[in-house]
Design a protein around this nucleic acid. Structure first.
Lengths: 151, 151
DNA sequence: TCTCTATTGAAAATCATTTTCAATTATAGA
DNA sequence: TCTATAATTGAAAATGATTTTCAATAGAGA
């Protein structure tokens, strides 16, 4: 989804298009890494010096509500957001550069049915996330201990 | 693992056994739900009125460091802890009563290998969590919207 | 028992997030 | 295009969770 798409969704849902919102949308839409509100603020401020951190929080809240972004849970913390995909997708996160790659996990259906049968649970939702090193980070220095995204 | 096991691990790792630590250990070890530091504090205080919240935080920190407990990530928040299992296990959480059930997910190996091949990632770690209603909560009122653990 | 140092709880500090509020501004309608 | 109005803004204050500080206390080995 492009920046224009996101802006249209905001507008179609009754939200006004302001410079502040445009700034946040541009930064987050463009990122292939999950970003915290503070990171978005710092990044957006170079082009929009008047932007306030509060507005970043409020804009992220609306983008999440409209399912344009989603919160990313990691061992090191759960405050970061990344642009969402249509439908249910799983995430693969690079522990060194933070890159997020989506993948489909249809193979899970059997597992889930199986667990539901065994446990008696009625399963409504699932989370699957894989952590590792992306091809680039892995080949650049495969033996280095990843530090960036570890607690 | 019993309360005594946990206390022995603490002691074996050079930590002293105090009334405050015993209080926290007893509460958390006994719970089948994930509990936040504040919940542990409130619960432990009935038997140990002198206990401070700060000590709860510090004790949970040590229990986590010793892998006796682990942090539970949920849509509604990631501040709660539950007793850990040996080896890698996955969690099934009841969205109504909060009950946590562990299960093994060996079936994931194929999926993970497959994704690694497709994406070029070297996968180091994975998280799989299922959310739903446990048999008891489901049968008691299957149509009620679960509220407790939703964001 | 005695000594030493880890541990304690209270208070203060910190950090992230939310709320309040008066000023500003996007947008629908004239 | 102009105007009215309600949404939105940023700053400051408030809140809530967590961490740090510090002097007093109390495990645990000698």
């Amino acid at each position: 989804m492009t920046v224009e798409n996101w802006l249209k969704v905001l507008s179609d849902n009754g939200y006004r298009l302001t410079d502040s919102r445009r700034a946040v949308v541009e930064i987050v839409n463009d990122s292939s890494r999950a970003m915290t509100p503070l990171e978005v603020f710092d990044s957006a401020r170079s082009s929009h010096p008047e932007l306030g951190l509060v507005t970043v929080y409020r804009t992220l809240e609306k983008l999440e509500e409209l399912h344009l972004i989603q919160r990313v849970h990691q061992p090191a913390g759960c405050q970061a957001f990344i642009s969402a995909r249509q439908g249910h997708q799983h995430m693969l996160l690079c522990q060194r550069c933070g890159q997020v790659t989506y993948f489909e996990g249809d193979d899970l259906d059997n597992l889930i049915t199986n667990i539901a049968d065994k446990t008696g649970y009625s399963i409504k939702e699932h989370w699957l996330q894989l952590f590792g090193l992306c091809a680039k980070c892995h080949s650049s220095n495969p033996n280095q201990v990843p530090g960036l995204f570890h607690s």
